[in-house]
Design a protein around this nucleic acid. Structure first.
Lengths: 187, 187
DNA sequence: CTATATTTCGACCAAACGGTCCAGTTTTTT
DNA sequence: AAAAAACTGGACCGTTTGGTCGAAATATAG
């Protein structure tokens, strides 16, 4: 699965070949096909495996906590995942970009249920005057977009600011904190 | 080129076949190879063609204008491009996601020069106390990420909020406006 | 009209790819 | 130790894919 993640996240589904994966995994093609019946099966197994970890940060958003604190913690967790596991982020980016043909059921099921639930929490916070009046859904999209950007567009970020990885994420953290926390302050 | 954009933006470079493109363009394979020498040449031509239009909004950021007004105009232009030409956005997303093998020279050349220049402008605004203290580069990344998200992750957005396209972009606009303008206010 | 350049077409090719097969080896179970 | 199960390697196969070729059709020029 490590080899599959390495290859699929770099070249996408169609861009990856079985030969690349077995070579990266240092095994033979028949060995792989002993465990999986097709290329798609490897890909879907990898997607499913990674997806669970991917949803965790949002589940931790606590309705009982302080709104601004909770949201900022969520942003930090997501940003940290982009730094520590950019390949997983790119794997999903590829899948979604191509229309999510393999995980559509998870999007409409598990993910939608989770997002709907958390958006209710956020809406409650807004109604209580603890957050600026924004659309909870679009707020979550903003958080996803800004944090995953550092994984998905790593090459571009790397090209435009030469900084080493640590400084880059520290600066990103500070800018996100300023804009999100300042921006979400109720007026 | 329309057919190429349609196909490449949907399936990515490796995921697209010459046959798909010529079929979408309603022409024969040899006809296509009369104009282009290879699949890559079609792809690069399309990328270059689209890239020019893509950079326009940033060039219009006016150093002489009102900082918050200028940045908000830029955001609106970018968001509008995601709505009117999502395929172009996805074409680039694919390319960058895979390491930008075909447009690296543009990233390090033209794009970097433009971004560096505009970041100087933004830094000046910050130094004059007209904007909150953020990293100009990461601010631009935030703008790119949040606006292009609606094109690149259209399927996911569509799945999670059932709204029609118009309402969706109106809500996105309002949320981005609140958070960015509120967030960038100097304190 | 004739000749030249441009454009189109279907047939074809070689390489790459996903996947199969089977004979053999290693590991586990009894 | 014997038998069964799990696992591996490499040769092989059919399809897809990027790309070629030459002949025919169409347009342009003198």
């Amino acid at each position: 699965m490590d080899a599959a993640l390495e290859v699929f996240s770099t070249y996408g589904y169609r861009g990856s070949t079985i030969d690349q994966i077995v070579q990266a995994a240092d095994m033979s093609k028949s060995s792989l096909f002993y465990y999986f019946n097709s290329k798609t099966e490897v890909y879907v197994a990898l997607l499913s495996e990674t997806l669970e970890e991917w949803l965790k940060p949002l589940t931790q958003l606590d309705p009982a906590g302080d709104p601004l604190q909770e949201i900022w913690s969520y942003i930090e967790r997501k940003l940290d995942m982009s730094r520590t596991n950019p390949k997983a982020s790119r794997l999903f980016a590829n899948e979604i970009l191509h229309g999510a043909p393999n995980i559509m059921s998870i999007l409409t099921g598990e993910l939608k249920a989770l997002v709907d639930e958390k958006c209710q929490t956020i809406q409650l916070w807004i109604d209580q005057g603890k957050l600026a009046q924004v659309s909870p859904y679009h707020l979550i999209f903003m958080i996803w977009a800004t944090t995953q950007h550092y994984a998905d567009y790593e090459v571009q970020v790397d090209t435009l600011i030469g900084d080493d990885c640590d400084k880059r994420f520290a600066d990103a953290n500070q800018t996100l904190k300023t804009i999100f926390l300042n921006g979400l302050l109720p007026r």
